[in-house]
Amino acid sequence: MRHIISILLENEAGALSRVAGLFSARGYNIESLTVAPTEDPSLSRMTLVTRGSDQIIEQITKQLNKLIEVVKLIDLVEGEHVERELMLIKVVAATAEDRNEVKRLVDIFRGNIVDVTTTTYTIELTGTGDKLEGFMAALADVKILETVRSGVSGILRGEKSLHI
């Protein structure tokens, strides 16, 4: 099953490689991983998407908790949560027909066109992974030049939060 592990960790050099090293050394898989500082500059927040049986996920969370730099963590899928991912996607939009079609799809998917040239559009889109994939599928014959995805970020719904 897919799990989203949200981790509060010390914002220190090396903390990220400890997490990444743990996953490779123990043969756990990482589907995506994002990390950035929080409102408290001494802390980073990491969101890590992984898959595994309950037993493997239990080991993953225990092993992560053992890392000295990990302050706290939760598995977001255990509760109600919001999950979002940002995608930047550059497509060929050289003909009027393509430009119209892409513009229409971007509106339907509530994205933004953030950069325009005579032959390309760069689109910004946020949503769940499914939505981003849905958009790419909808582009159909439009040629994609590149896609850049941020990986999943997640947060608990309601008043609950992960903090120290």
Partner: peptide, 8 residues
């Protein structure tokens, strides 16, 4: 003392 030793 190590939770990760338990049920590993």
């Amino acid at each position: 003392v190590d939770p990760a030793s338990i049920s590993k």
